[in-house]
Design a protein around this nucleic acid. Structure first.
Lengths: 228, 228
DNA sequence: CAAGAACCTGAATCGGATCTCATGTTTGAG
DNA sequence: CTCAAACATGAGATCCGATTCAGGTTCTTG
């Protein structure tokens, strides 16, 4: 297990939400199947079009069984968001692991984000819908990702790799916002239009974005470390 | 009517969606009252918690009357989003009108966007929810805003005010994404947390964002007009 | 292999929403 | 003033989906 995994993964006592008791191997498998089905159904249909019946059918599981594992439709949705959050951060930190230098790491992190988004379009859609289904969980999602960015930016400012005049928190949110909308526009919309090839981010777009980020983060030539 | 208004406003034949006939003065007023009520209700409750009954009650209008003006709940929602789109762009172009120089205009456009968001936080929510209620309309919304940005960026690249190595389309989407997420985090969340003062964007955040944008867009010192 | 624990099931309940329609009211042209 | 067109109404038909529950099946342990 890599160092980045330590940051990302958390101990989680698996319990039946109904009984509160630990799950057996069989129960765990059922729960996992429900979560996987939920990911597909929520992604394809959106929260409100999705229904418990559709999820359980997709999972090949009886309707009533659902309530042994989750209290409600909202509960499984929240569990799914947190699960996706864990996975996307894993994908990002994995991508950043090899990078040398902060700017390089930033680029790599984005690449990891886009790779994950391309492979799991569900992430984007589900996460954004969380804003309306469960604002609390959405905040947790964004905040966890931003924390990582922000820490990295501070460190890079200390070493002079990143413009010291930038506000790290603001910058972190700005970078997140960029990534999200560009992912939406150039991965998901593209994918909807064409057949469905998972799509790679168009090289022109990726290059343009890289240039944009490089410009934004690099210390100015005339930078003395503190200026307007 | 200013030049920016010409771009933004469109002729719209007002017709009853049910009969297809033009509305009388009385009918127009009813339609308007429904839209205004819908704005409040969708903003406060979100799309799915909102109901036709709540909207008509708020408007002080009979339930059945609703269907004389809109075919469905989704139809009135879409009409509302397009209306808000017109208003945000108006706010942005108004703010940009006085600016001299492209970078200055970019900053002003953002200020206009944030002013609108700060004044109508709930409306911002409605637009974001459109992604799930009516993706088509959401694309229209984003695309219309991006078109303006992109044209501006191209012009500024031609005059050398903006880094020629940036891809205008990518850059436009990046800027939009930034604006959105920063608006969400520092206007809407802040507002939810505290009482509810409409809030101005925190000066530190606004300054940080400005620096970020300036960095990103400005031509590099060593820029020859075409480089990696 | 007996028996209890854990797990599974889907028909039925229940609440809530959209949309229709038969009927009533207002407006304005002649 | 008259009357047809336009507008307004809300009870109820109809649908849909979340959640419950009474009763089955599978696993595991002694």
């Amino acid at each position: 297990m890599s160092m980045s995994d330590e940051i990302v993964d958390r101990e989680e006592e698996l319990v039946s939400s109904a009984t509160g008791r630990p799950l057996t191997k069989r129960g765990e498998a059922t729960r996992r199947r429900l979560l996987e089905a939920a990911e597909l159904v929520f992604a394809e249909q959106g929260y409100h079009e999705a229904s418990i019946v559709k999820i359980t059918e997709r999972a090949g599981i009886g309707l009533g069984t659902f309530y042994l594992y989750f209290d409600s439709k909202q509960a499984i949705f929240e569990a799914l968001v947190l699960d996706l959050n864990r996975r996307v951060r894993h994908s990002m930190s994995e991508a950043m692991a090899g990078a040398s230098g902060r700017l390089e790491a930033e680029r790599a992190g984005f690449a990891g984000f886009f790779r994950f988004t391309a492979e799991h379009p569900a992430l984007y859609r589900v996460v954004r819908e969380a804003e309306f289904v469960s604002p609390e969980v959405l905040r947790t999602h964004y905040t966890r990702i931003v924390e990582g960015y922000e820490a990295g930016l501070r460190a890079a400012q200390a070493t002079g790799d990143v413009d010291r005049a930038l506000d790290p928190e603001t910058t972190a949110w700005a970078l997140m916002g960029m990534g999200e909308l560009i992912g939406m526009r150039f991965l998901l919309w593209e994918r909807d239009a064409e057949g469905k090839p998972p799509a790679q981010l168009d090289p022109v777009v990726f290059a343009g974005m890289t240039r944009f980020i490089d410009n934004a983060l690099a210390p100015r030539a005339d930078d003395t470390g503190k200026e307007a």
